[in-house]
Design a protein around this nucleic acid. Sequence first.
DNA 1: TACGGTGTGTCCATTCAATGGATGCCCCGG
DNA 2: CCGGGGCATCCATTGAATGGACACACCGTA
Lengths: 259, 259
Amino acid sequence: MTSDDVGVARSSSGESVLTRAVRIFEAFSPDDPVLTVSQISRRAALPLATTIRLVDELTRHGLLARDERRRVRIGNRMWELAQRASPVRTLRETAMQFMGDLHHVVGHSTQLGILDGDEVLFVERLVAPGAVVNITKIGGRLPLHASSAGLVLLATACSEVKARVLRGPLTAFTPHTITDPRTLRATLADVSRHGLAFCPGHIHPDATGIAVPVRAAGRVVAALGLVVPNDGNAWSLTRPLQLAGMALSRALDVHARTS
Amino acid sequence: MTSDDVGVARSSSGESVLTRAVRIFEAFSPDDPVLTVSQISRRAALPLATTIRLVDELTRHGLLARDERRRVRIGNRMWELAQRASPVRTLRETAMQFMGDLHHVVGHSTQLGILDGDEVLFVERLVAPGAVVNITKIGGRLPLHASSAGLVLLATACSEVKARVLRGPLTAFTPHTITDPRTLRATLADVSRHGLAFCPGHIHPDATGIAVPVRAAGRVVAALGLVVPNDGNAWSLTRPLQLAGMALSRALDVHARTS
DNA sequence: TACGGTGTGTCCATTCAATGGATGCCCCGG
DNA sequence: CCGGGGCATCCATTGAATGGACACACCGTA
């Protein structure tokens, strides 16, 4: 075992290729969209030789791409495959015009989120130039209990998700973040009743999040939200937001009926 | 061989797992966003057992998702990974406002395409309600020689791509599609000189495509285009389009400098 | 009730694609 | 000239992946 262990490979570490591929993709982030193979190897905790082979193959498939310096970035084909048939696509496509209108009228950051896992996944965002701080990003996530969009989605989520979130740790972003399960449960009832979530300072002290449900065929499929300054005027924006949410919901129904 | 060949598996057909996974994703299309495992198995030409195993694992990673009837669709995580660090994201994000403005002013379908492989890949589109026929889709592709956006991108593409397209078959969509390599070469020179591609009826008899280059740091990174009715008014829309293209180019430069 | 068709999922002996340490190359800064 | 980092290839080893057979569930028809 120790004597003539010149042996080459003691084979794998018990992971599937797909797992490793996903880890490679996860190595990228908005802050590091371009990586060297070595960086990927370290971040994904994969042997260098293995990383090189996988990156090579993913590149051949167009899921990754390499620039002139042989650095690696995510390939356009990846985007294309994801875009092609994802439910996100149709939602985004019809939502955009309404978001544009809303953004134009209220002049604040507008965003659209869906429930994925136990988080909100933001699929579209229109930023107001010089707007309040907004940590949301397209493709970004926020916990369900802390964000206005999250509360809207959680209020109509299935009981398993509700139970998990109510049980799980309710991490605080600010002193105003809801961290008590009983408060959360009461808030959810409120949100359900009014069809509106109003979250002053829950995520950032200077920002208020407001969100309304977006329905398709009666079921809540997304949350449409605004991020506005944390002043007394926030409430006046709830009406336009609600109208926009209703308009989008109607458009989704029409779209579904004609296609 | 025939007698006791009760043997189970004669193992693989010499394909990597990743190749198969990509084929599974390619089985989906905008027209069939939801498939059964059997359908995937047939379309991807994979044994059923293998398909089930791979679909299972991809689902565990969130790259695929299954509905209540156990049918399969592309998962949100796929979209998220692609979105996160793809160059498409930043381009789309800054382009959107300018596309919105342009769309608002001219009132026709507006689209943004990039060069990927030897085709245009459209990354964003704003449709005019009741507009001319427009076969482009977000995430859709068109050949370089036939579309206005394609000509803009081809005019500034590297010589290898140019050579391949000029050599390759130039398929016709209508009698107006450019199919002669010499005409194509001349047109490309024109497009380069004027910074504009004007394609009446090249793709559809009733539609005119117009496109201008979008530059970042001097290099052409995308093509901004309009699809308008095939009447005499099309030319009057070139000026606004050119302005929008220039505005977007400037915004990309500023964005690059500040980030 | 029986029956064919279709979609789904599990089992498991077989085996080849995947593995990763070793080696060497190139480039850069000291 | 040397050390360090990134990149890439080689190749003996092996376990993850394979896919035919089997079994179950469902549905409309005979």
